[in-house]
Amino acid sequence: MSYSEAQPVRISSEPAQLQALEPVLQKVRAAVGDVPALLTLAEDIGRTAPKPGEGNTAKLWELLASVTAVDVAAGRVLEPHLDALAILSQAGAEEPQEGTWGVFAAEGPGTKLEAKRTANGSYVLNGSKPWCSLAAQLDGAVITAHTEDNTRAAFAVDLKHQGVTAETPAWTSRGLQEIPSGTVHFDQVEARPVNHGNWYFQRPGFAWGGMGVAACWLGGAVAVARDYTDALTKAAANGREPDQIALASLGEIDRILATTTSHLAQTAERIDAGDLEGSDPDGPSPWPEALRIRGTVATAVERVQTLVTQNLGPGPLAFDEAYGKRMADLSLYIRQHHALRDDAQLGALALKGDRSW
């Protein structure tokens, strides 16, 4: 098990189409652990990457899944940059011609970021924002802030502004060590509104972006499954054929990944067909499908991880650097899913009639 493979993850494309990803994945493989190099790659990829809802959503998700399958942290670098570009495009705002961007929308106890309109009609940000990954190394970000009319709105911000101070967090996790997420402080930082009001949360792209994160999770699960098949193949070559338990586990993994991938492919097709564009929180909306996708993929990831670790035991966790890193990175990344709280939200929607069964 290593970073030697740079095999794309297929969602719906033909194998010949996926070959176009291989040069990019080779560059990702060479940049593992080198955040500046990964940021440069993200900037390059962003110039030509598809955007969700524009006809190639499945290809976007294949890109995200494939990069994450090479290295989970690399996917964690790429996804927010592409999401930021998509948000600006959806808002009809000018997209950055250079630099790498993030999306900072988390809230946390004891922190609050406020946006106030100045006398000349522009906005400035004051306060603090938690969970800002790589803020000190990014050029800009789409950031949500509390406005004077008691809503949260999105703003485009230059992170190199002199009023921006990024804390260095005490990151004790073994997962995503190269991508710590700390608190960023803003002091009279100029900000450009991204559309207006709570558009950021109401737009269909909010749900589409959440599904893009799930595509990254899927890529991590596929990589873990490939680690497992590689281990079984290597053992068989050394005279140790897989037993029934090992084969049953591989069969379950195959079933899980095939079903999950199919769900993503069908949803991407629906997005591009215009079936998931509603923005009315009380009417048709893509958000229930986002909750289904994220929950399904998160469950798949955790089950694949469990099956693989049960079968391979402690050896690769203790001695295989790439496998151990992938497991630790993916375990932390998947915690962006809100588990039972998201299921409760989905259940409330189903109870109101937003279901297909």
Results as ranks from 00 to 15, higher is better:
A37T: 03
P50W: 07
A248I: 01
A37W: 01
E252I: 01
L257M: 08
Y3A: 10
S331Q: 15
R203F: 06
D149E: 15
R203M: 06
S285N: 13
Y200T: 00
Q188F: 04
R10S: 10
D83Q: 10
E22P: 02
D227V: 08
E277H: 12
P284V: 03
A246M: 07
I11A: 11
V77K: 06
Q345I: 04
R174L: 13
A135Y: 03
R303P: 14
A348N: 11
P8E: 11
L351F: 14
H185N: 07
I271T: 00
Y228A: 02
T296N: 09
L25S: 08
Q310Y: 11
Q90Y: 07
G197S: 03
L250E: 15
Q202G: 09
R174A: 09
G239C: 01
L332Y: 03
G53S: 02
A65K: 04
A235C: 04
H196K: 12
T168I: 12
E178L: 14
A290P: 03
V189M: 05
A106F: 02
K325H: 09
G121P: 06
R226W: 00
E289L: 13
Q19V: 10
P314E: 07
A207K: 04
L312C: 08
A214H: 05
L276K: 13
S2T: 11
P96M: 02
Y200W: 10
G283R: 08
R326G: 04
R294T: 13
A328E: 14
E22S: 05
L82I: 12
F206L: 00
E190P: 00
G315Y: 04
R203W: 10
G53M: 03
Q26Y: 06
T147D: 13
D275H: 14
R355S: 13
G219N: 07
R29N: 00
A231Q: 07
S4A: 12
G182A: 01
L88A: 12
G102V: 00
H337A: 09
A223W: 02
V184G: 03
D158G: 08
L125P: 13
L332G: 02
L232K: 03
R203Y: 08
K160D: 08
L307T: 06
A344I: 12
L276S: 09
A156H: 11
E43Q: 07
A237P: 00
V224F: 10
V67G: 00
E54Q: 15
A16E: 15
D83T: 11
A350M: 11
R47W: 10
V67T: 09
Y333S: 12
K59H: 14
I245D: 14
R174I: 11
W287H: 14
H338C: 06
A290D: 05
P242S: 05
P96N: 06
D342A: 09
N195E: 13
I11M: 15
L257T: 02
G239Q: 03
V297K: 03
D280P: 01
A145V: 03
E321M: 07
T172V: 05
N311A: 15
V213C: 01
T111C: 01
K160Y: 07
E62C: 07
V301K: 01
N195W: 14
K59I: 15
W171S: 14
A225P: 04
